[in-house]
């Protein structure tokens, strides 16, 4: 990151609090892995040895929402499940972000049926829609990098009203 280089030369840096906090936040995004169906398996693959999410500082998968920054909704959300998802989202402390992983989470996808919610944005603010059924692990890493970028540019005074910025769409698969 170049911080070491600065320390070697002058020993001080000038920055804003927002930039410093944003930099710290983006480098350790703790995901809340809500692996509901098929996408959950690909999420496991991202945590596994080949794709290794630890390179991006997000290997700390916390299964308690109280400790998480990003809600990773990986899988089909049914009406019965939607209340649970919402409850988990409500338990997460601010600031928080949401990744809708896979098409059935984003739009209902191939499940046009009576029990599937046609997109979780009906009840949750979504920051990133991730295409693919399921998205390849590289694609999820891409989404993570995008959300890191978004976190980096979020200022402290924006936290009151989430969603912060317009949702970003990721193409792929």
């Amino acid at each position: 990151m170049g911080l070491e280089a600065k320390l070697m030369s002058d020993g001080f840096i000038t920055t804003t609090i927002d930039a410093l906090v944003g930099w710290a936040r983006e480098s350790s995004v703790w995901p809340m892995p809500l692996g509901i169906s098929c996408c959950g398996i690909e999420m496991m693959a991202v945590a596994g040895p080949k794709y290794d999410i630890a390179r991006f500082g997000s290997e700390v998968m916390r299964f308690t929402p109280r400790q998480c920054d990003v809600l990773l909704v990986a899988g089909t959300v049914t009406y019965k499940m939607s209340h649970v998802v919402k409850k988990i989202y409500d338990q997460m402390p601010d600031p928080k972000w949401v990744i809708a992983m896979g098409v059935c989470t984003s739009t209902g996808g191939m499940y046009r049926s009576y029990s599937v919610v046609q997109g979780i944005d009906h009840f949750l603010p979504v920051d990133i829609y991730l295409a693919g059924c399921p998205p390849r692990p590289d694609n999820l890493l891409n989404a993570l990098m995008l959300i890191q970028d978004k976190i980096k540019h979020t200022r402290a005074r924006d936290f009151q009203n989430i969603p912060l910025l317009e949702p970003v769409k990721v193409n792929g698969n």
């Binding site: 509901i36 169906s37 098929c38 398996i41 899988g75 089909t76 049914t78 019965k80 499940m81 649970v84 191939m110 499940y111 046009r112 049926s113 009576y114 029990s115 599937v116």
Partner: peptide
Amino acid sequence: GYLHRGYEKMAENMSYYEFIPHTDRLDY
């Protein structure tokens, strides 16, 4: 029932060929 996606109902509304991709997502 938290992942009940209504496969059997969907199957009644699509041809046999169309259902093949759906079988992937049964035991994923």
